[in-house]
């Protein structure tokens, strides 16, 4: 058996794969946070709850309506996105003139309510969500065995991240978004409906969280608590990357997932802590974050 630094290659690659999967979710979630924050100046604490909501929508669609994974992959982000739009219209839009911390506190309350509701009805134990038949089983890569679904998660997250990046950097809608991030009043004076843009952006960010949630459903258990623990790690990711750059959020997400995987191989006790330790180091060395433009 081949060894690297006294660790069997299989074990190393296995943990790196786990890290890559986690990193995929970090990347998708920190991307959504960055998109929302860029335009709305709101830290969406409910992002974790919306991720949980995405997974639950998939689970409920399957359990009560018999709607399977593939339609759910479209429906879950759509439903979570619409939910986000309602939240923005009814509440967040009233908070833009106040201190940004109120947006954080409001979405924190929203996260508690969402989590509380699902806990009330479904308890804290997770519900399994089966891997769709098309992606069941695995592939022997020669050096390791890759469960097909996990491979799909990595591919899908890359598509989502690249797609969102292209939407923002390469399309006309994206140019409105970037311009409104710089100077919303002027863009509105040009005749662009910026309030609508804000609503859609929060909807898009929420939908991204929902999509991450349905992708996660077969990997992790569908549980009311799945989002709240994750969101705090994603906050650390966002502090490390800085929210000034979409690409920065994506790259930092994958990197930290891999760093976590590596730590699991070499020093398993610290694997929960490594992201926070990296955050502390980055704060010492580069307080604005690796890709931060706003100090």
């Amino acid at each position: 058996m081949t060894m690297i630094f006294g660790i069997p290659v299989q074990a190393l690659l296995g943990q790196l794969l786990v890290g890559l999967i986690n990193g995929s979710f970090y990347a998708m979630l920190s991307l959504g946070l960055a998109v929302i924050f860029g335009l709305l100046r709101v830290i969406n604490f409910a992002h974790g709850a919306q991720y949980m909501l995405g997974a639950f929508v998939g689970y409920l669609l399957l359990t009560y309506l018999g709607i399977g994974y593939w339609p759910a992959l479209i429906l879950a982000p759509l439903i979570v996105g619409l939910f986000g739009i309602v939240v923005e219209r009814l509440a967040l839009s009233r908070l833009y003139d106040t201190d940004p911390l109120y947006g954080l506190l409001f979405t924190f309350g929203l996260a508690l309510v969402l989590e509380g509701i699902f806990r009330y009805y479904y308890g804290v134990s997770g519900n399994p969500y089966a891997v769709p038949p098309l992606l069941a089983g695995g592939t022997n890569l020669g050096f390791m065995f890759l469960p097909n679904y996990r491979g799909w998660v990595v591919v899908a997250s890359l598509i989502v991240c690249f797609g969102t990046w292209a939407l923002i950097e390469k399309t006309r809608l994206g140019s409105y978004l970037r311009a409104a991030t710089e100077n919303p009043r002027l863009v509105q004076a040009f005749g662009v409906n910026v309030p609508l843009l804000l609503t859609l952006t929060y909807g898009l960010g929420s939908a991204l969280a929902g999509l991450a949630g349905i992708l996660a459903a077969p990997v992790y258990q569908v549980s009311p608590l799945m989002g709240s623990d994750l969101i705090i790690v994603v906050f650390a990711v966002v502090v490390i990357g800085g929210m000034g750059s979409i690409l920065g959020a994506i790259v930092t997400g994958y990197m930290l997932g891999l760093a976590e995987g590596l730590t699991k191989v070499f020093y398993p006790e610290a694997s929960n802590l490594v992201v926070f330790v990296i955050m502390a180091i980055v704060l010492l060395v580069r307080p604005a974050g690796l890709f931060g433009r706003d100090a």
């Binding site: 309510v113 989590e115 509380g116």
Partner: peptide
């Protein structure tokens, strides 16, 4: 009645109507 739902609701109401 779940405590988290109550606290969450109070949070939202406080932020929206009496900061």
């Amino acid at each position: 009645f779940p405590v988290t739902i109550a606290t969450g609701l109070i949070f939202m109401v406080c932020v929206l109507v009496f900061r």
